[in-house]
Design a protein around this nucleic acid. Structure first.
Ligand code: MN
Ligand code: MN
Ligand code: ZN
Ligand code: ZN
Lengths: 147, 147
DNA sequence: CTCCATAGTGAATTTGAATTTCATTATCAT
DNA sequence: ATGATAATGAAATTCAAATTCACTATGGAG
């Protein structure tokens, strides 16, 4: 974590940036917070530790982390941007439309089929997004009982 | 097309709605326009035919078509809502990050693997979104030449 | 160390697509 | 025809996100 922050600061310096306490705090909170946190979530968590940090800095820092490749921007269609660490391996998402639970999965066969599809279209893929929406186990069971 | 509008009007009546000239024009333009049109695109097209139609009516009508199941809302992450007809069969999208070209594909093996994944997680899927981002054939070629 | 160009900050403001409001008009069952 | 109410369009509002700007902090040059 400390070495991670050091590495990030090096990269920031490499592109002509300086260090700052606020930004370091945002980065630390981000990597300590669970995945799929909204900007609001992150801002709350940061400001709980240091009230003086402004929303703008949280927003700017997350954009920066995304640019450097450390964070991924997510959008599950609820009008809120979410972020997750890009250090863990690639995965896709199951999003519960009832309770908002987001779970993750990996399916190499889907990944490879996507590559095939892209190739067939002469398309050079750089990323993809696969979100499956529906009801999580809990909410599916609860829904059945209501009938 | 005419019978489609009639069918839609019947469904609208069934839920206590009335008909209107403006709405009929929006619906007609929507089904005549290519897929993945933004709300702005649709509003422009409608107003080209009839200046008096307000943006609000275009927006409301598209939301209504989505609710009735005739239109699908799309979001390719550029901050603009897009709509496509839901009468054609399901497909996913290849989105060029350079020129904006959106192409479509169907891959039943991916669809079926998604079902499997959902089932494994006790998840009851209602829909999914798979977008592959990258460079279309044209832009990939153009990019190579620049190096 | 001191200087100082410039990156970073946070409060406040702005942006911009989408939605909502509201007074008016259009639809349609009776 | 009448009246209840759905639909309209201009304008106002919403809201997350981005931007502005006066000020502060950083860090390389000398
Ligand atoms: Mn995730
Ligand atoms: Mn499509
Ligand atoms: Zn759930
Ligand atoms: Zn292209």
């Amino acid at each position: 974590m400390d070495s991670l922050l050091k590495r990030i600061n090096l990269e920031i310096a490499a592109i002509g940036g300086k260090r700052s306490r606020s930004r370091a705090q945002v980065i630390e909170v981000f990597f300590r917070t669970g995945p799929h946190a909204t900007l609001e979530d992150l801002a709350q968590a940061v400001r709980k530790r240091n009230r003086t940090v402004g929303y703008a800095t949280v927003y700017r820092t997350m954009k920066l982390l995304a640019k450097l490749g450390y964070a991924k921007e997510l959008d599950f269609g609820d009008g809120l941007k979410r972020y997750e660490s890009n250090l863990e391996s690639h995965h896709d998402h199951l999003v519960c439309q009832e309770c908002g639970l987001v779970s993750e999965f990996q399916e190499p066969r889907i990944e490879s089929l996507q590559e095939q599809v892209a190739k067939q279209h002469g398309f050079l893929p750089t990323m993809h997004r696969l979100d499956i929406y529906g009801l999580c186990r809990q909410c599916a069971v609860a829904g059945k009982k209501e009938n």
